[in-house]
Amino acid sequence: MKRISLHFAGAVLLAPGLAYADPPKVTTDVPPVHSLVAQVMQGVGEPSLILPPGASPHGYAMRPSEAARLSDADMVFWVGPELTPWLERSIDSLAADATSVALIDAPGTRTLSFREGATFEPHDHDHGDHGHDEEHGHEAHDHEHGEDHAQEADHGHGDEHSHGDQHGNEHGDEHAEAHGHDHEGFDPHAWLSPDNARVWLDVIAEKLAEADPENAATYRENAEKGKHGLDTLTAQIDGRLAPVRGEPFVVFHDAYHYFEESFDIEATAAVSLSDASTPGPARVEEVRDRIRDVDAVCVFTEPQFPSSLVDTVVEGTAARTGTLDPIGVDLEPGPALYGALLNGLADNMVACLKAD
C-alpha cells in the first residue's frame, strides 16, 4: 500500500509517475470524506463509498461488494487508521497498488486529544493550540506518526475488543474503565472542523490533479468553490449557535470535540467511550450525577445507536434528549452531505438547548 507522506514545506507532496488514461477510480471511507471528494470531482467523476449509511466506522466488516470497490480503486481517500484500523488492513490486502491518502496526515490538519473520563477533566478543556502539531512534533518530526498512531488506535479499537455487531456496539468498555481512562491518542473525528475540511479539499484536489492532469484545473476550481462555501457555512452556523452558547449538554460519545472547538460550544460529559462502545454501570451513574450537578439541558444520542441508553441516563433528571449525527447516517451521500451534516449538528443543538 502506498500511504503517501504529506508533510513538506509549502505545498502538497505528489508521488512521481502517477498518471491515468481516464480519471482515476476513487473510493473513500466515510460519508463526510466521500462528500469532500465528490465536491472536488464534480464534472469529472464520482467516488465510491465503502462505509454504508448507518454503520459505525469504529468497527465494521465489509460486504463483498464493498471489498470489490476497494480492490478496484486507483486512489483511496480516508481519515486514517486512527478511525478505521480495520480499513488499513483491508487496503494492505485488497488495494496494495492503490495510492492511499490518509487525510489525518495532511499538513495543516489540526488534531485534538481525546478528553479524559466521562466528565472531561478540566485540564482537557483548553481550547488553545494543543493539537497534532504540538503533541506529535509536527514541525520537528516531518509528520511521521502514522505507525505510532495506528498502534494507539489498535490499542483502543483492536481485536481484543468484542464487536457484537456491524455497528461495533460492544467493544469491551470494562477493559477501558478498569484502566481508568478513555482511549489514548488523538481524536480522529477531524472532519467536524471546517478548517480541516478546507485543508482536505486542497489535498484532495492536488492528489487528483497529479493523477489526472487533464482535469487538474477542474479539481482545483472545485476545491476553491468548496472552501468559499465553507466560509459562508461557518459564519451561518456560528450565528445560529450564539444564543445557546454556555448551555450545558452531554453527548453520546466524544465525537464532537472539533465541532465544539470550531464554534465555541462545549460538552460537559460523554455517555460512552470515544469509540461509542457500551458504557458500564459506573460510568452511567457518573454521567447522571454530572447532569444533575451542572443542570445539563440536553443529552444527545446518535441515530445509529439505541436511544434506550440515553433514556436510562436522563432518568430522574430534568435533561431533555436530542440527536446528533457526526457522520451523516440519514443523509444522501454526495457533494451536499458535508454542509448538511454540519447544519444538522447546529440545528439539533439549538432545538434541544434553546430556552423553553
Rank of each mutant, 00 (worst) to 15 (best):
A98I: 03
A98P: 00
S100C: 08
S100Y: 04
V101Y: 00
V101R: 00
V101T: 02
L103E: 00
L103F: 05
I104Q: 03
I104A: 13
G108C: 09
G108P: 03
T109N: 01
R110S: 06
R110D: 13
T111Q: 08
L112H: 07
L112F: 09
S113F: 07
F114P: 00
F114M: 09
F114L: 13
E116Q: 15
E116Y: 07
E116S: 11
A118S: 10
A118Y: 01
T119H: 01
T119R: 14
E121V: 15
E121F: 07
P122Q: 11
P122G: 10
D126R: 12
H127T: 15
H127V: 08
G128L: 04
G128H: 03
D129I: 08
H130C: 12
H130S: 11
H130W: 12
H132T: 11
H132A: 14
E134M: 13
E134S: 11
E135K: 13
H136N: 07
H136Q: 14
G137K: 09
G137Y: 03
G137R: 05
E139P: 03
E139M: 11
H141K: 12
H141A: 13
H143C: 12
H143Y: 09
E144I: 03
E144Q: 15
H145D: 08
H145W: 14
H145L: 14
H145K: 05
E147I: 06
D148T: 14
H149Y: 08
H149S: 15
H149I: 14
Q151A: 15
Q151W: 08
E152H: 02
H155T: 12
H155K: 09
G156H: 04
G156N: 04
H157Y: 11
G158E: 02
G158N: 04
D159H: 12
H161N: 08
H161A: 14
H161G: 05
S162H: 14
G164C: 11
D165K: 02
Q166M: 10
Q166R: 12
H167P: 00
G168F: 07
G168Y: 06
N169S: 10
N169E: 09
N169D: 11
E170G: 04
H171I: 07
H171P: 00
H171K: 04
D173N: 06
E174Q: 07
H175Y: 10
H175N: 04
H175L: 13
A176N: 02
E177F: 07
E177W: 06
A178W: 02
A178G: 12
H179K: 09
H179N: 10
H179L: 07
H179M: 06
G180H: 03
H181M: 08
D182F: 06
D182K: 06
H183W: 09
E184D: 12
G185T: 01
F186E: 05
F186K: 01
F186Q: 01
F186P: 02
D187R: 01
D187Y: 02
D187L: 02
P188M: 01
P188V: 00
H189I: 00
W191I: 04
S193W: 01
